[in-house]
Every structure is written in C-alpha cells, then in structure tokens.
Design a protein around this nucleic acid. Structure first.
Lengths: 201, 201
DNA sequence: CGCAGGTTTGACACAGGGTGCCACTTCGGG
DNA sequence: CCCGAAGTGGCACCCTGTGTCAAACCTGCG
C-alpha cells in the first residue's frame, strides 16, 4: 500500500539519527584520528549496534564525505539561476559562492574546517572527496555544453569539461591555499585571483 | 655487508613477478570485473599464496593504480627539460606529451585502454586515480611556482596550483572525450583544442 | 660437498569494513 | 487492543590487509 502521508516523520527521525551519528563520530575522529576510530566505537558512542550504523550510512567514508552530495544539487540550481547570456566563466564563479559560505556560524565553521582538514590528510577520504568533486563537475558539464552550443549533443567536444574542470581547479587552489594559510585572506578573494589568472576564450 | 653488485638480480625478479601478477590480474578483471575478483583468485592464478601477493603489492588497488607513479617522475623530468623562458602553458602542454604516447604497440595500447576503462568505471579505483593525479600535480606546482616568481616561497599564491590544475583539467577532458569516442581523433588534438579554450594570463 | 647467512615463502591468526539473514521489538493506525 | 510495517540487534560470513613464525630456498664460502 501507499503510505503517502505519514512518511515525513520517518525521514526526519532518520536525519536526526544521522546528524547525531556524524556529531559523535567527528568528536572521535578529531580525538584519535579517522583510521584509528572503528565503526564499533562510533556506534557504541551513539548507543546503537554496528549493524544499525550501516543502515544509516552505507560506509564509514560516507559519514564524512556524504555532505558533499548536497552541493551537487545546490550548484546545479545555482547555475540554472544564472542569466543565460552571462559569460560562463562568470557564471561558474557565482556558482562557487554557495559552496564558500554555506556555513556562517563561526563555531560550526571551525568544526567544518577541522573536518575538511581530516579529509585532506586522510588518503582514502581525500580520494573519495576528489571523486565527489568529479561527479559534481559531471553535472555541470552537461549544462555548460548546452550554454556553449545552443543545443545539447556535442559529445566529441572537450571544451565544456575543460572549462568546468579549470574552474574547479581554481576553486581547489583557493581552498588549499586558504586552509594552509592563516586565513586572513578570504577564499573568495583567493578564488578571484585564481580565476583572473586562468581565463577562457 | 654491502652486496653492491649482486643486488639488481633481486630487483629484477621482483619486477618480473609484479608484471606477471598484473598480467594475470588484468585478465581476471576484464573477464569478471574488478570487484568480483578476489586477491585469492589472482594469487592462485599466478601460483602463489595470498600473503605473498601482498608482498608484491601493498593493496589490490595498487596493482592497477601503481603504474601512474612512474608518470610523476617522468613529468617532473620533462618539465625541468623545458626552456626556462617558455610560456608555462606551453610547457605544460609539452609535458603531457609523454603521458599521451608512452605506449606505442597497438595491442598493448588496446589492453591499456581497457584497463583505463576499468579504472574509470570502478568507483574505488577512479577515486584513487584522481588522488594520484593530485599528487602529480603537487610535484609540478612547486616547479611552476618557481618559474612564475623567480624564487620559491610564495605559499599564499593560488595561481601556480590554479594553472597546473587547469592544465590537468584540459588533459582529463581530452582523455574522457577520447575514451568515450570512436578514437578517430587523437588525444593530442583534443588536448590542443581544450588548451586553446582555456588560457592563462 | 656441506654448511651458515640471509631472503622468500606459506600458513595461521587476527582486526576491521561491509552484507545477508532472521528473530525480536517498537510504533502507528484501524 | 491487535495487526502489520519499520527499525533493531545479533550472528555468520566474505574480503582486504597485517603481524608472526617456521619451513624452504638460494648463495657464497670453506
């Protein structure tokens, strides 16, 4: 049967459990590192069994990396919202805005940066992070291709992927410099510098 | 004692075992997929024990992904060999040449492309591949930084990373278009197209 | 030839991530 | 109150990866 109506409650408690789990897990990761924290520990700390943990997250990695899935949708939306006649490079720059300041609360932001640092310093997580980025780019490439050539259908054209990839390269350069610096310069400024150096014709 | 002279024999037999292992493993991967091939199967097919396999490769992934380590050295060399006054974008283009045609034998090349296809279609391998690429880029960024500013030491400058990243984005766009196409256009041409679209100031 | 050195190998045990299965509880609605 | 669906925990299991240790295997040397 279709249980159409009553479902949102389930989804909400589910998300609650997930955030609780992430919170508890982050504490452990920051305290003893990602690799040295077992799923058993996380589950125990959250008061559930190991088996149940895997019902909330498909893998230990996803607990950390999963949040980047949100970006894909948001960035796709943001790109669609840009005026159609805007230069694609500028559109890309604006799309990145939402990735830059999606967290304002300074406390939460610090925690976020700390997790980013863990991702960067854990080879396995870093790898999966890069893959997520690639997947996001894939979403955008199709849209950029349509902008360039009125219609879709130019599968042999390397330019859309090159443009999107180049833009993300600028983004990543800004991010990495920002995280390694004393954070006096904002990511936005660094990104502007990078995207002024690399341009598209 | 220093067994200076007689040592290369060890290294050679080791490399022999490694290539044998890769060869046998590739057959299995192509036949039944990467995930569905266990290390036990590979080891058995190569006539050794599982434990010994892990003495030749630190992980199953590395058997596939390891070859890209060679590129790091070769590309670093290639970049150093470029004239110091050459435009960095042109230098990057030339550096990619060695990655493009390091296999000439058409039979071997087909096998190589098949493995690349497996890497691309296996999430875990794709992730680790991207990480390798990132590591290679890291090597090059330092060198590009020196070229831009006479000396080293400009850790707050996002431009070197942006340039190198953009160049690699062009490279990857060319590669992905090439692999998805009927392969009539060469990667070199696609790369030229991509790198003509993206420019640096 | 036979022995002493180091190296390679295989077998075993073990930890950790991840999955399928099944019984039990829990919770919401009629 | 009862029924059915969802959530849960425990168990067994597979696979990757590592530490350990004893046996096999060279290899040079007397």
């Amino acid at each position: 049967m279709e249980q159409t109506t009553a479902t949102p409650i389930r989804a909400r408690t589910r998300r609650l459990a997930q955030t609780e789990l992430t919170s508890v897990a982050q504490d452990l990761f920051l305290a003893q590192g990602y690799d040295d924290t077992t799923v058993d520990q996380i589950a125990a700390a959250a008061g559930m069994s190991r088996r149940t943990f895997f019902r909330y997250f498909p893998s230990k990695d996803d607990l950390v990396i999963g949040k980047y899935d949100l970006f894909a949708d948001r960035m796709a939306e943001a790109l669609d919202a840009r005026p159609a006649d805007e230069a694609v490079w500028e559109s890309m720059r604006r799309v990145f805005d939402i990735a830059l300041d999606y967290v304002q609360d300074p406390h939460q932001r610090a925690r976020n940066d700390a997790m980013d640092e863990i991702v960067r310093s854990t080879s396995q997580l870093n790898a999966r992070y890069l893959e997520k980025l690639q997947r996001i780019q894939q979403m955008l490439i199709g849209r950029i291709a349509i902008r360039l050539t009125g219609t879709d259908a130019a599968p042999g054209d390397p330019r859309p992927a090159a443009i999107v990839g180049a833009a993300f390269a600028c983004m990543e350069s800004a991010r990495s410099v920002y995280l390694a610096s004393d954070q006096t310069t904002t990511i936005g400024e660094l990104l502007d510098q990078a995207m002024a150096t690399v341009t598209i014709t």
